[in-house]
Design a binder for these strands. Structure first.
Lengths: 148, 148
DNA sequence: AGGCTATTGAGAGTCGTTCTCGTAATGGGG
DNA sequence: CCCCATTACGAGAACGACTCTCAATAGCCT
């Protein structure tokens, strides 16, 4: 029963750190996980409004924030002062954002290790956390553009 | 006459792309260049208010934006939905932000080259531009903390 | 089941940023 | 050097994303 397993995992993640398992949080978590691109709280609100008309915007903000705290998602700043959220598939949180289709991929962490070492050695700087977002064209969009 | 040279360079940068050379833009550009750390528009406004009481906040926003367009500065997003601006010393725009003293250093660009190559090769992704901000403790603050 | 407490929904409030508009200043052309 | 179209400024209003408030509701533990 893979579905049950999935739900259990989701529930466990949501309820970590003493949080309660509410319908709203499950809805938001599932919607974000289903999304394969970065999405803002407002977009999520609009998208969920059909099936869940009473789901409030503030609740979505709170649910997304809870997911970030639980390590289930990351927030990335988009141009225009709007934050967007992405569900995390893995532990590391660096992204390739396609400027054409808005899809987001995770960056292979091992690529970054030499950079962190270089910063420590060359700049004498101790990195606690970093935000690395790369913007450009993913393979699919590049092929589509080339086909035109 | 190094001062004159400096002023001329500044004026040239400001007037690039058909912009006009106004007192306000010079004031803001000099203030930002003098600043060795990231600073928000509002902070700049407060700081300049003594010497220039009539300098409006909107003007500072516009001047900073013009500097970003002219390549004289970059905007980086700070936590809490406030943007901060840093004058650019060099061409590349990646930063080491000290979370203790808020000072900003530029990252040596050569460190990043392998990462861009890795992304192109491993992820089949064409990077157009990227935002790399590293947060942590600079050498000075680390020594100060160790001395306690 | 029952109660303690976290969470929700709705809207008001906050705050950074941008827009508006009347006024002032800039810089190119006579 | 002065005119004048055009750009920029200042002040405050407007905007928009996000957060807070508070009464009502719903999880979770025993």
């Amino acid at each position: 029963m893979p579905r049950t397993t999935t739900r259990t995992t989701l529930a466990k993640r949501i309820t970590s750190r003493g949080r309660r398992l509410t319908k709203q949080r499950v809805i938001v978590a599932q919607a974000l996980a289903a999304e394969r691109q970065a999405i803002s709280a407002q977009e999520l609100h609009q998208r969920l409004h059909h099936g869940h008309p009473r789901l409030g915007l503030a609740t979505i903000y709170r649910a997304l924030e809870a997911q970030v705290e639980a390590g289930m998602a990351t927030r990335l700043e988009r141009q225009g002062h709007v934050s967007a959220y992405v569900a995390c598939v893995s532990e590391h949180h660096h992204h390739l954002v396609c400027t054409s289709c808005q899809r987001v991929e995770d960056v292979d962490e091992t690529i970054l290790r030499p950079v962190l070492r270089g910063i420590r050695d060359r700049h004498d700087f101790q990195v606690d956390h970093e935000r690395l977002d790369f913007y450009g064209l993913c393979a699919r969009c590049r092929r589509e553009k080339a086909a035109l």
